[in-house]
Design a protein around this nucleic acid. Structure first.
Lengths: 199, 199, 199, 199
DNA sequence: TCATAAACGAGACGGTACGTCTCGTCTTGTG
DNA sequence: CACAAGACGAGACGTACCGTCTCGTTTATGA
């Protein structure tokens, strides 16, 4: 991953452990994306990582633990927090990012599969909750900046705003299965900022 | 699921067959609630229904199919659509109903487990999407009535309002794991109706 | 296995359970003979028996339990107790039977492998002890008959005589590895009946 | 196995190497006695010897090789050849020595475990056969002295007498599992010297 | 009412994947 | 330079659950 040790061939495998860990997590993330948690087999992950099954089990005690690790790895790279100068602009960008991540066929499968797995295994549940708590805390900076700019009242519940913006997207993704589009993202933001009632 | 067509597909409606079907679905719904989809074993469902495992498989080809049936059975009884006379009152009641369903330990497990299962199996996915589409369509009557009363503008996207009201609750339930309370329900409705921006 | 139901193809699996049991035990006995306990794989036994691995584990909890059963099955068919009319004749026949069983390359491997396995697993140990106790008890009838005929004094320890006759054969088989021949069998019997001291 | 060639094959007899070798063999012998060959783990031997697993594998290519070495070390110290002046006295002492070695719970386990291991691995088989061949050759000196004294006829097969004396003890140990006592040792010697037939 | 077709009970089975154990090898530093 | 430390490859073991199959038995329906 890093730019410096991209040497392939590896006569001097210093840091094998780390390389193995990375390779397994990458393989797990890929397979997770391709076939989902249920159909992911630990042995297939091992094979794709160029590693033996027991090696995977040496580091991750269960398939769920491996998935938890792979999922957080996968999510770690992305997630820029928008800063356009207006709360509406920021929230629309934020919502569109969600759409980009889960709006595609592949993204949808990955997200649903992870949500499923999280409901299945306790350790995965914890990992996922932690990830999202952190993710939303970061995003709520958007609201806090708007409060500082005077766009929003000081009493605004930052987390709630974020949750309300992304909420409908996840409802469609997980409950109704209806498409999650950028146009929807914009409409949600307008609803949440303006309110449904006229004024 | 309506009361009149309870013998759809039944060649021999009179008696045991129907009794068995009901007993199995009830047992499945119970166990689903207690331990979740993953840990639910078809054989345990059969035992609790006082029936043999093969009998279950005779009617439902897979565990997912059984779950889909059991889950829709479970959801069928509930769901009154509020009608308080004001959009805010209706939405708050609606949101509180969600909280009542999924806010408890048990409800949370059941809901998460079903969401998980829906992500796992295609047939369950379809069943769940259908259920929620219908559910939200019913709920959006709330918004339509408010439009007719003149509370909300005619351009209001009824479905979107409903999705936005219940969205944050499901985000907490499935993603962050934070508690889902009635107080939260109220705050969400206020945010969605008033909007975050001052006016 | 029986002479009457040799029909292959089995449209009516009446008595399947028994057939499976027999097939697995036979396969296990064969493989045990061919490669020994250590190199015997439960899955190979299953395949040779035309059965799935899990089916084997359903009946026999461990490889050792399967081996114990297979070994006693194997030993059950043989073992005629000689009755030539004289103690020397009977003992020589008995000793030669042992030689026939364990004197060949294959018999030697089988016997040593079983002895090894018996030392490994407690359940196998018990099974093997039981088998041999019974086997020797049967053989000691030889001595008892000789006592009744007046060939041997009434004080003769029947079991001890049998053990002493077959002892050297097993010493060679298990300890020194020297060949176990029929000529040796005869010499042992002469030694045990006549005694080493002159008279 | 003799005391003089303890450095056969050793390039650097002088120090750490030898200490490590001794410690490992002693640890292996102990663990072998305690838990038997099957449950002995190379890594446990290494730990008890205060050495790393790889160090053990540098010197002994396999677990069997290590066991062979450890077992012969263990057996080397014992085994005085009796010399009481009479064949009966010598044989009884010899048999009692066997009883002392294998009659206890611990000795029994060790002996059976080694016999088992010998049946398992070819290299162990050879080592054990060599050990016992030598052992019996030494013991047969007893018979040869008796022949020289005129106690036994010149035609006596020395090895056979020894094998027949210890045979029943090993039969009980390995096959029937019955107790191996000193009283049994005496009775065997009487049977082998006097013969079963009256005279 | 009584034969008969449908459904059921019982039990084993095939199959897939999981997670475990131990052996023996390999790599990387370190005294 | 041998050793400590530890990961790794390999292969078998035993487990859990799903969904299938067959046989014999019960139950509901229609002639």
């Amino acid at each position: 991953m890093s730019t410096t040790d991209s040497r392939v061939g590896e006569q001097r495998p210093g840091g094998r452990a780390e390389r193995v860990r990375t390779a397994v997590l990458r393989a797990a993330a890929e397979i997770l994306t391709e076939v989902g948690y249920e159909k992911m087999r630990v042995e297939d992950v091992a094979v794709r990582a160029g590693v033996h099954k027991t090696t995977v089990y040496r580091r991750w005690p269960t398939k769920a633990a491996l998935t938890a690790d792979a999922a957080s790895l996968h999510s770690a790279d992305a997630v820029p927090i928008p800063d356009t100068g207006t709360i509406v602009g920021d929230l629309k960008l934020l919502a569109r990012e969600v759409v980009v991540n889960v709006g595609t066929q592949e993204g949808s499968r990955r997200a649903r599969s992870l949500a499923a797995a999280a409901a299945t295994s306790d350790e995965l549940t914890d990992a996922m909750h932690g990830f999202w708590a952190e993710r939303l805390a970061l995003s709520s900076r958007i609201v806090e900046r708007a409060v500082q700019r005077g766009e929003l009242p000081a009493s605004t519940d930052a987390n709630l705003v974020i949750e309300t913006v992304i909420g409908p997207l996840w409802v469609r993704l997980l409950l109704t299965g209806e498409p999650v589009t950028e146009e929807l993202a914009d409409r949600v933001v307008e609803l949440v900022t303006e309110g449904a009632l006229p004024h």
